[in-house]
Design a protein around this nucleic acid. Structure first.
Lengths: 226, 226
DNA sequence: CACACTTTTAATATTTGGTTAACACACCCG
DNA sequence: CGGGTGTGTTAACCAAATATTAAAAGTGTG
């Protein structure tokens, strides 16, 4: 749509974080606005109608949730993409977050690379809504292929790349049993040779992170997701 | 080994990269087309309607963005999946890329494994590599060769490898009586020697799991499925 | 180049499906 | 009726497959 650079509104009461995020975003060429409290945030939002609004959950006065609700109530803003920043400890609050209409959660501490990647994914969504959300749900599990995250019952779980690839592969066809060979070919490629136990180790880590029940073994055959 | 006859169009002005990617894709069984400039690309695209189009961003004449726009404008092509190739440095351009309707960005230098994995993911998105469901039905029984499971009246039953192989064999020709020798040769192979009772035990377990009625014995001859 | 992190290897433990063996049962035939 | 033959049942054993762990090797990053 717009040919101008995307505009992003950052809202956080901690100046350091504001500064840090803002720096990273500007480096990528985004048009960044800042606010340190809810009132300023709404004022700016109404004025510039940012493509993306990033809110810290924990703030005095109107907190992130409250601001988000207000945004969703505003005729001109309700279609904005809203992402929350939240510390790992208070992750249960994500449920609340999605209830008030959040589009994404970004865990603190923020890693620049991941952060920018997600911002990008969020902005992309904002444009063409026909784009199906690249998310898969399995009971209490949500897998977001865009942001490389897994959320289990509101708790964000960080996976390494291999772990994520493995999970994506297995969930691409729940119930299907993938043999070791198949897994090797699809994730490691046809000519990479690694030890047999490598997969087991990754499977183990995955189970450790997302819970044991979901990935099952059929001895002599392979693994599957259920 | 599944035959992935998805067709992929590669567009890049550097012959080396074209060759490299093409090699990797073909090795995986994809049907690869190449073009070294935008005009050729559009010509080929209109003719073969590839499932996936991979464009280098940096090209003379019409660059990747321009080609992508044209693809999105074309009635027959606008639903193709389009991925961009781009060097790490020019990341800002990704915003532009998503704006013109790109589905993914693949960073150069390209690593085969990652590349193939993403291609796979993209093709999956394209409309779900529809593979035939490997399922057989017998009255109240459904046998799913993919998941090594049997569903009986809605209840999923997990079978071990041997049990499953046995079931598959017997149901491959319902009514036909398989002799012990036949079963041994087909499941254990020609040179494996196991005791006579081994089959009985597996048959028993199968009967236990899927019900007694289905597998019948003809004394002195063998077993059959009805 | 030190640090943090991911991936792989290697060594060890544990699990479980497959097999066996011993025995029970059913049926046929003299 | 009793021995013969073929199959059913059971539990115990074993080895292969997998799980687990820690440490080494590889990666990127400041």
């Amino acid at each position: 749509m717009e040919t101008q650079n995307a505009s992003i509104l950052l809202v956080d009461d901690e100046p350091d974080i504001l500064e840090f995020l803002s720096y990273n975003l500007q480096k990528e060429g985004y048009n960044v606005f800042r606010a340190s409290n809810g009132n300023d945030a709404m004022k700016i939002a109404r004025k510039v109608r940012p493509n993306l609004i990033i809110l810290d959950v924990m703030m005095p006065q109107p907190d992130g949730y409250e601001i988000c609700r207000e945004i969703r109530r505003d005729e001109h803003l309700k279609d904005s993409v809203v992402a929350f920043l939240s510390a790992k400890s208070e992750e249960v609050s994500q449920i609340e977050g999605f209830k008030v209409g959040a589009d994404d959660f970004i865990g603190k501490p923020v890693k620049p690379k991941v952060f920018l990647f997600r911002v990008q994914a969020l902005l992309r969504r904002q444009g063409g809504e026909k784009e199906p959300l690249n998310r898969v749900f399995f009971e209490d599990l949500m897998i977001d292929k865009e942001s490389y995250t897994v959320v289990k019952r509101g708790v964000t779980i960080e996976l390494s790349k291999k772990e994520f690839e493995l999970l994506i592969l297995l969930t691409s066809r729940p119930g299907k049993v993938f043999t070791r060979d198949e897994i090797f070919r699809k994730i490691w490629g046809p000519d990479v040779i690694v030890g047999e136990r490598t997969i087991d180790v990754h499977i183990r880590k995955l189970r450790e992170k997302i819970g044991l029940g979901n990935i099952k073994t059929i001895k002599g055959v392979g693994y599957y997701f259920s």
